[in-house]
């Protein structure tokens, strides 16, 4: 009974974390190339709404997912154009787009509020799903959840194990030297920002078509900001970014377990649903604070360096800076 409960909880945690994984991996790709796409919260809302609206009208979940990806890619294209071609402040454009996306999603989504609609079918993987414990947690899910696993693995492999991935790192770290070696910096930045945006769009679709079905006002509740924080938390490394997403999922699951405990009966439910957001962000700030520097200074340098590398990552050298070709 205890084990069964644990397996069930973990299985729903893995599913519930999939939009966060997809969004933060998408953002990792874009930031690795040097572009901050701060529009995430609005992108996710707008793509979640679009995904549901298209799936609802056409009856096809797959068309819904594609439409959501297109919306995410389009938002990222605006960010890319503003920051690469126009050299505007990336944070400013992203923030305004985040607000625009939220409002637009509310306006256009109005006819679809609280309508029952299609969802991504449950699809256990044969054989693998029958493996005890791990099977039901990882392989008794739907396609979107598997895509979130795939996104992590493929992104890691692409960035660290392939030739184009090496170029991607160069473009984000030292755009000037990448350019000197004949890499078209700005074209690659466009491509990776848009690809990252498409993943963010898929995150939106996974919200409205798989995790929290349908559409309602503020349906995606601040998930984009958490994804952005998790990218920093994970030090721009796909595996650690994924770990951060599951940690956030764990906090949320703990919240809903604690909420059912009679000892917390007079704590309002809103607190349990928003506490994980605050906790996650404060954890991030704590880890990157100067206090940790001081603590690490007390340890022997070798150990300190290891711990530092394990808990913190350095942003790509060219992050947020437009590349000017002289």
């Amino acid at each position: 009974m205890e084990i069964e409960f644990l397996v069930q909880t973990l299985s729903s945690l893995v599913a519930a974390a999939s939009p966060v994984v997809l969004a933060s991996i998408g953002e990792t790709i874009s930031e690795k190339s040097g572009v901050i796409n701060l529009s995430l919260d609005g992108s996710i809302a707008l793509s979640a709404m679009t995904g549901f609206a298209v799936a609802f009208t056409t009856g096809s979940v797959w068309l819904g997912m594609l439409a959501a990806m297109a919306v995410g890619a389009l938002m990222a294209l605006v960010v890319a154009f503003a920051s690469i071609t126009l050299r505007l402040e990336q944070v400013a454009v992203g923030f305004v787009l985040a607000m625009l996306g939220l409002e637009l999603a509310d306006f256009l989504g109005n006819p679809f509020v609280r309508k029952p609609g299609p969802s991504v079918p449950h699809w256990p993987i044969p054989y693998l799903s029958e493996v005890p414990i791990l099977g039901p947690i990882l392989f008794d899910q739907n396609l979107v959840v598997y895509l979130s696993f795939l996104a992590v693995v493929v992104t890691w492999w692409w960035i660290y194990k392939t030739q184009p991935g090496l170029k991607l790192q160069g473009v984000g770290e030292r755009p000037e030297s990448a350019f000197a070696r004949g890499v078209n910096v700005n074209r690659l930045r466009y491509i990776y920002t848009v690809v990252g945006g498409a993943l963010v769009g898929l995150a939106g679709a996974s919200y409205s078509l798989s995790i929290k079905l349908g559409w309602s006002h503020r349906h995606t509740f601040g998930i984009g900001w958490i994804a952005l924080a998790i990218v920093i938390f994970g030090g721009w490394d796909p595996w650690r970014v994924a770990a951060g997403s599951y940690l956030f999922g764990l906090l949320k699951a703990l919240g809903s377990i604690l909420q059912r405990n009679p000892a917390f009966a007079n704590v309002p439910t809103q607190i349990f649903s928003s506490a994980p957001f605050a906790l996650m962000i404060f954890a991030l700030l704590l880890i990157s604070s100067e206090g940790v520097d001081r603590l690490l200074a007390l340890l022997p340098p070798r150990v300190a360096r290891r711990i530092d590398r394990a808990i913190r990552g350095r942003p790509p050298g060219g992050l947020g800076r437009p590349f000017v070709q002289e």
């Binding site: 701060l38 007079n266 704590v267 809103q270 928003s274 962000i281 990157s288 206090g291």
Partner: peptide, 27 residues
């Protein structure tokens, strides 16, 4: 002292303030 873009500190404090307001009104 946090060395992360101030947007995140601000958002964290917004969640905390909202939580405090709700707790006060409910209790």
């Amino acid at each position: 002292y946090g060395k992360v873009h101030e947007i995140f500190g601000g958002l964290g404090l917004n969640y905390a303030a909202q939580g405090l307001a709700i707790w006060l009104i409910f209790n």
